[in-house]
Design a protein around this nucleic acid. Structure first.
Lengths: 172, 172
DNA sequence: TATCGAAAAGTTATAGTGTAACATAGCAGG
DNA sequence: CCTGCTATGTTACACTATAACTTTTCGATA
């Protein structure tokens, strides 16, 4: 058993709290900024927050279709995603073509993630020293920096503990 | 004018050297490993090395089609790319769905890039301290690490110097 | 409150990226 | 030369994303 404190996303936790916190924060943030968190956008955001696993646009589309009776076309979900991305409420995981909720949308930051290859959980990093390192690397090469993404693949603490055939779907 | 030494890729340079060096290294490496750098694979690699800008699979497909008379289907280029990726001769830039030659394929490493938003040049980073930082971040979160990618977007030194309407195609 | 304009969502079609599955060709070792 | 494996050709299709246009919704204002 590891003594390292695993991120919440990788632990058994009351995920209802994650969702409600995210939705409350989102409503507040949009209100403050004077942008509209419409029913659709809110629905997409809450669907993304159903787990700590990145979801693809087409998966979200299916979930939307199931929730409502009418069919849902790609632009519908992509526009909602575009809005949520712009407001920093979600991030895009490039290596997965997938989207995940941002736990701290009020502070502007880049997309830095740890991704578990077994259970798919993605944990957002918030490391000032990593950020600084990236800035330094850019500066050393004479680059001005506008954005960056870090995607680290591995096994989360839980999946390491249960090794091979671990809980692929046991955690949110 | 910047006093920082810009990477070769961002400077005027004799790109023939880059290509020949890369191709020689690739042949040597494949020979050493007992894997086959077939004509097609070599052609794809050399096409990728025509510039320091990442190329998409379909762009490569068109280039292949132009070079030979027969038509070229997606699996042809994707299989060559898969081989080159496995051997570490190229890297994939996830945020661009594109591929770029690796300047140091003999040493195993991850995909870390600076990407110029103006001229598209991608410069590979080789920073032990950045690597260490990423390992540390993973460890702190209880993750075991198997791979990682870093993609930094910004402006290369040359494009900063020439600002807005800089040389979009002036450099290899 | 009726209307009007802008923003959002619906709709249709299509572009761009990537892979599955099977057939053929080419090369290495017996 | 055969035989088996690796590589490539071929067809079809799955997945991801966007363009372009229409309709709806919402809120500000007359």
């Amino acid at each position: 058993m590891s003594l390292i404190a695993a991120p919440i996303a990788c632990s058994k936790h009351n995920h209802t709290h994650c969702i409600s916190h995210a939705m409350t924060a989102a409503r507040q943030l949009c209100s403050d900024r004077g942008v509209r968190l419409t029913a659709l956008r809110e629905q997409v955001l809450s669907l993304i927050w159903q787990s700590h696993k990145p979801l693809g646009a087409y998966t979200l589309m299916e979930m939307l279709a199931l929730a409502s009776t009418r069919r849902v076309a790609p632009p519908t979900v992509y526009r909602a995603l575009e809005f949520l991305l712009e407001e920093g409420l979600i991030h895009r995981i490039n290596s997965l073509n997938a989207f995940i909720g941002c736990p701290s949308p009020t502070q502007k930051h880049q997309s830095h993630f740890l991704i578990c290859q077994n259970c798919s959980v993605a944990v957002e990093l918030d490391s000032p020293s990593l950020n600084q390192k990236l800035v330094d690397c850019a500066t050393e090469a004479g680059f001005s920096l506008t954005s960056h993404s870090v995607e680290i693949n591995g096994l989360c603490a839980l999946c390491q503990a249960t090794q091979k055939n671990g809980p692929l779907d046991d955690q949110p």
